[in-house]
Amino acid sequence: MLKIWGRTSSVNVQKVVWCCDELGIAYARTDAGGTFGIVNTPEYRALNPNGLVPVIEDDGFVLYESNAIVRYLAAKQDTPLWPREAKARADVDRWMEWQSTGFTPAMGPAFLGLVRTPPEKRDAAAIESSRAKSETFSAVLDAHLANRTFVTGDTFTTADIVIGCAVHRWLGLPLERTVRPNLERYYRALCARPAAKGVVSLPVN
């Protein structure tokens, strides 16, 4: 059985769990990271020297980096989540990179400041800067979704899993946001997927 290390409050762990549930992959998950610890033990560092979550072990194969894990799990199966055709796959991959290098890092300071930092220690300027940067990315996504059901068209893919986790976090942050009708319609469609319930039912923490 697939093994997953990582707490579900981690947006990166959420990607892997959602992917497994979409694909019907059975797994055993161990809470790790944050208050659960484990990640600094020699045993865990042997799996991931970076000390981050998630990590998977699949029949002796160990892999870390959440988007790489999602790609790997989908690639093992003949599924539209990870297209076979090169251009379609590159389009999916492009949006997965957009999430990991742009959207999620942009909202990082706002998330840490508003969710993981006591009010008296918050850096208001950093939070506002993060909010403004995140708005830029949410505007890009909203415009892109104007005539698409999912990120790359009418088919749900791994790009929607990783971006969906980011959107869940963004819409759950306690801050003012510009109304994005296409983004909100997209999020509602994701929430309706049975495999998404384990993620979208979670509070942003």
Rank of each mutant, 00 (worst) to 15 (best):
F61W: 05
S129R: 11
V140C: 04
R169E: 00
V11Y: 04
T152I: 09
P83M: 12
T8S: 13
A143H: 13
A159K: 06
K15F: 07
S100T: 14
W5I: 08
F103M: 15
K197A: 15
G6K: 04
I56P: 09
D91L: 12
V11L: 10
L63N: 03
V16M: 09
A86K: 02
Q14H: 03
A106M: 11
L52F: 08
D59L: 02
G164Q: 04
V16R: 10
D31A: 13
I56N: 02
A195K: 09
S9P: 00
A32V: 05
G108T: 14
L52G: 00
K121V: 00
V162F: 01
Q99Y: 01
L145P: 02
S130P: 03
V204Y: 06
V17H: 06
I69E: 10
V179S: 14
S9I: 14
T79M: 06
F103W: 07
P181T: 11
V115K: 15
N182D: 05
I56S: 03
A86M: 07
C165Q: 01
D123C: 05
S138N: 08
L63A: 05
L190H: 09
P194Q: 09
F36G: 04
L171E: 10
G51Y: 12
N40T: 13
A146N: 08
G51Q: 12
L190G: 05
C165E: 01
R169K: 09
G51R: 12
A106D: 13
A126Q: 08
G34V: 07
R29F: 02
Q99K: 00
P80E: 08
R131K: 14
R45F: 08
A143T: 14
E97G: 01
V115H: 03
T136Y: 11
A88S: 14
S130G: 11
M1S: 12
A74F: 05
G37L: 12
Y27E: 07
V70Y: 06
P54S: 04
A166N: 04
V115G: 02
H168F: 02
L171K: 13
S66W: 01
E120A: 14
P174D: 08
A106S: 13
D160L: 06
V11H: 08
K197E: 15
F137L: 12
T155N: 03
S138R: 13
A28D: 15
G24V: 11
P109Q: 06
E120K: 06
E85N: 10
V199E: 01
A26G: 13
V11K: 01
N182T: 05
A146Y: 08
A32W: 08
R71L: 12
G37T: 11
S134L: 03
E184K: 02
A132P: 02
A125R: 11
K76T: 09
Y187S: 09
T101F: 01
A75G: 14
V179K: 15
L190A: 07
A159Y: 06
G60E: 12
V162Y: 00
I25V: 15
I38D: 11
Y72H: 15
S66F: 06
E135W: 05
E43N: 04
N50G: 11
Y27D: 06
G198D: 05
S129L: 00
W95T: 03
A88Q: 15
G6F: 06
E120S: 13
A110Q: 04
S10L: 03
A124I: 03
T178G: 10
S134K: 00
E97I: 07
K133P: 00
Y72W: 13
N40Q: 15
A32Q: 11
F156M: 09
L81C: 10
A192C: 01
K87A: 15
N48S: 11
R185W: 07
